[in-house]
Amino acid sequence: MEIPQDRLYSENHLWVKKKRGNNVLIGLTDFGQLKLGEIIDIELPDEGDEFEKDEVFGSIESSHGVFDLVAPVSGEVIEINEELLDAPDLINEDPYDEGWIVKVKISDPDELEELLTADEYEEITAGEEILTEEEEFDFEEEE
C-alpha cells in the first residue's frame, strides 16, 4: 500500500495535495480504494460548488455499495476530474495521479494543519484490514 509523503490525509481516506496559492487536489487514498473494491461510479460536485470541511461533496459507488465523500477542507471546487465520469476505475488504477477527484480553492488554509501526515495516516490504517466482499464494511455509507 502506497502513502506518498507529499500529501496530507483525512481519517475518511482522502488525500490532499497542496498546489499553487490556496489550491489543493483531493483524491481517495490507495488504502481507501482497496477497502472500497472495484469503483463502478462516482458522483462529483459541479465547478463553482462550495462546501465546508466535513460536509459531503460527492459519492463513490463500488462493489461494496455507495459511500459519501466527506470534505477534508472547506473551499470552492475549481475543477473536477472529468475523466472519472467515464472511467471511475482510474481511482483503483492510479489513486494518487490520474485518479484525483477535485481541485479546490481552500477558504481556510489553517484547516490543512488539522489533517494527518503520511506517517500519522499510516499509523491509523495499520490496524485496519482490507475487507473481502463477505465482510462488513466501515466507511460511512450513504443513507
Rank of each mutant, 00 (worst) to 15 (best):
M1I: 11
E2G: 00
D6W: 12
D6T: 15
R7Q: 11
N12S: 15
L14D: 05
L14Q: 14
L14S: 12
W15E: 10
W15L: 12
K18T: 12
R20V: 00
N22Q: 08
N22I: 04
V24L: 01
I26F: 02
I26C: 00
L28D: 03
T29S: 15
F31W: 10
G32E: 07
G32T: 09
G32D: 09
Q33A: 05
Q33H: 03
Q33D: 04
L34P: 00
L34Y: 13
G37V: 07
G37C: 09
I39G: 06
D41R: 12
L44V: 03
P45Y: 06
D46N: 12
E47S: 11
F51C: 03
D54A: 05
F57P: 00
F57R: 01
G58M: 03
E61Q: 15
G65A: 11
V66T: 14
F67E: 01
D68L: 06
S74D: 01
G75H: 06
E76C: 05
E82G: 04
E82I: 06
L85R: 14
D86M: 04
A87P: 03
D89C: 01
D89K: 08
D89A: 03
L90R: 14
D94H: 11
P95H: 14
Y96Q: 12
D97A: 15
E98N: 14
G99N: 04
V102S: 02
K103I: 10
V104D: 01
S107R: 09
P109I: 10
L115W: 05
T117K: 07
T117N: 06
D119W: 09
D119E: 15
E123R: 14
I124G: 07
A126V: 07
A126N: 15
G127V: 10
G127T: 12
E128Q: 15
E128C: 01
L131C: 06
L131S: 11
E133P: 04
D138P: 05
F139V: 01
F139Q: 08
F139M: 12
F139D: 05
E140K: 13
